[in-house]
Design a protein around this nucleic acid. Sequence first.
DNA 1: GACTGTGGCCGTGGTG
DNA 2: CACCACGGCCAC
Length: 916
Amino acid sequence: MTFDVRLLDSTYSVNQKDDGVSEVIVKLFGKTRENKSITILCPDFKPYFHVFEPSPALLKAFKDSPDVLSVEDVTLEYKGSQEKFAKVSVRAPWMVPKFRGQYELKHKTITLVDPPEELVEKLRAEPDVLEVSVLNGGVKVSTEDRVYSQKLINRYGLIAYMDEEDAEKFHTKGVFFAADIVFTNRFIYDHDLETCVRVSGDLMERSNEYTTDLLLKASRFEKCDIFTPKLKILSFDIESSIKYNNIYCICLTVINEEDGSRQDRRIFSEFGARELKISAEEQKARDEDERRILKEFVREVRALDPDVITGYNINNFDLAVLFERANKLFGKGGGKPDEEKKRQSNDELGFGRDTLGMSRRENRTTGFVTWDVKGRLILDGWLSVKKELRPKREGLGYVSTMLFNDTKDNIDSSHMDDEWQARKDEVIHYCLKDADLALRILTHPRIQAISKLMDVAIPAKLPVKEVSGGQNRMIESLLIRMVDREKVAVPMSSGEVYDYEGGFVYDTKPGLWEWVIGLDFSSMYPSQVIKHNICFTSFTKNKAEAAHTSPVGAMFLPTEKRHGIVPRMVEGLLTSRKQAKAAMKKAKEEGNLEQADYYNRLQNAIKIMANATYGYFGTKFCRWPYNRYIAPSITAWARDEIKTVVTTLESRGYTVIAGDTDSVFFTSKEHRDLEKCKLLGFTVQQEFSAGNMHLELEKVMIRFFAHAKKRYFGKIIWPEESLLVRGYEPRRTDSFDLQSETMTKVFQLVLDGKPEEAVNYAKDTVHDTIKGKVDLPRLVISKSVNEFDSYDNPGSLVHVNVAKKLQEMGYDFTPGMKTPFIITNGSAQPQKAEPVIEGVQFTARPDYKYYAERLAMALARITEPFGCDERALIQGNSQRSLEFFCDDKPAPKAEAPVHGANVKKVKQTATLDMFM
DNA sequence: GACTGTGGCCGTGGTG
DNA sequence: CACCACGGCCAC
């Protein structure tokens, strides 16, 4: 049988065969072109890793180990040279980290005791030796990395000249390569699988072990066309007692995209609210009842067999509740012996596509918790909303109202025990409603969380679950395949952190400007990689060979000599993005909007990957040790590129107003209409576009205002009329609506050439605010609150205090979630505020004076150039120097109508007492 | 075994 | 009052 499969997830198991030999089976989970769920079993794939020139002692250790299946000699490229490696295959995937822990060489500086003079001379002559220093009785030899130390040890038998302690460090040790690649990814890379694959094999009888429609033993993989199957999505919500932790009900709703059908399940306790003192019998009966609830949940999910499990804030709440209750009521459950504490699982929660339980993983540094079941994606609706929508508030009710004008039922979640006692049926309805809202959010056209993951998986060539973990997986997926194919060694990341310089930001010339032309380089960083052949395979230290020397001194070979893997990969991405864009255009012209939307998401996914490639080389977990040359070289060349444009434009008498990394905004006194600006823009575009660098005329603005770096707004008139705002409060999620709305209005008035109206509008709004003539919702401020103990001084931060207060009131606190509040005393230190809770009337009095001052501060940055500073906004008396601004005057003779030089910097703190 | 990067603004609280 | 560090969020 042959199936086309969209891969969703992968895992493996190790089986003991009858003859005592263990067999590793890779399991792939996916959905067929016919929308059937499938488990694919792939036997006979062996875990392996590479070791650089293992010493005879290490080689013997490998060969003597019963866990080692084979040791082969291979030649791989490392730092531009062909080197000898051993490929070591082992019995089970977990043995790879085991061997690494036992035999990995961790040191590189060699200390020799009384070595013969001629040996020292030989070492000095070695090209790989950085330094040989003689200190009392010993000789210290340092090299660039462990590979070269190992080489010297092997070549000169240096172990014999070490003291016991040092010999221990180097004896029976080796430099490991590719020993940290997740085993199932290793399988995917080696078989060059992509997110969609045609698989042939024997169909097996379905067993209870797997929940999928199909179970296939694979014998062959081939390429197949991309397709997007219809998925089954399950959303669930749990209501539980905050006081006693017991679960009252779990509600699920499942949609099958194939036919749009919906199914609901309500699983709930037979008991009423728990009370503080209960008999041992009741406790026992309640526990049994709750075990039934958990088992029923698992049974239902297995029977429904969804591809995706979602809910709102399930990562921090619902899944944690399941896990804790299962641990409490069933005992700790399985947990395989080879696993460490960082990953825990509970086998009773076996609602994945195999029989293993749900597992928990916690990021050590951020504390961020993720959950996993095999074969199904777990997506948190809250995280998707945060990422795609960036709403000012993140509560389920607020988001639902915003997206589809529907909201939560009215149940007081801070008193769940009382609610359960008083109106059980309504709580169950509320619970199902929350599950329903979460499901609708995840699939909402503005979010489309699943579709986006499916799309990103295409260029990344990975199972969908892999791409939800971060960008580096996607980059490595492409990179490692190419690197392997070309027999280049895959090092493990050193974890080294280093700082380097980023993009160039032009010091903005503040003020209001007319006829501003904006250009930017398309894909600046990827283009630099291509232009200068920047790669770990083309990096050289040989001046004579180098074709490109970056401003930070790194040298790269010419393309003809060695076309780097990274430039080729990036080129591939840019090319396929171009193709996706063309396909989108075509689909649009043919009126196929759904397909156009698909290609739009695809081109966007590719763009993200192309840009993330640069970022990958700047991280501490980048595998290639040249990373400290690659990212800094990319940014340095990019700085040169944009600075060249800026200085050239300035040398011609144009006024550059702003620029950031790959963009430039400028104006010319001779170009005061659209046609002239476009012509000039296109001329500049032409002049600075060469090879693979494309400077593009992006927009012409009739008016443009800026007061600082990364803070500007403008009225675009070409290619399409629109309002452009960057950095200012309307873009920020931590500003209050009154502030965002007032500023947007002021921006429009300024851009329409009505500064007087803008100033008056600003004053009026400030005055209305002082008088309290403003709706409460427009004063809500919302800020993210992290884990309390992550702060230096949590008590001094108003938003953290509000979150603490909410927690004390009985609401669950989620680190990272925005907390909405209204300031009630802005002059207290720390400021005082009251939380804003969905469905609860806000009764406190806002500190209107505080809001008026915040508003005035923000507005003053815009009105200041027109002679109206913060004090004036509040006092309402200054009208001076408005003549600076005009829209009926002829085009200004020199430079701009208003310029930074004309504006007095007035910095003062206003108080309302001045006029009250 | 998770994990893109640097540059920048601005409100706030703390210090001298 | 000037200055600094922290924290949040944004531009690219």
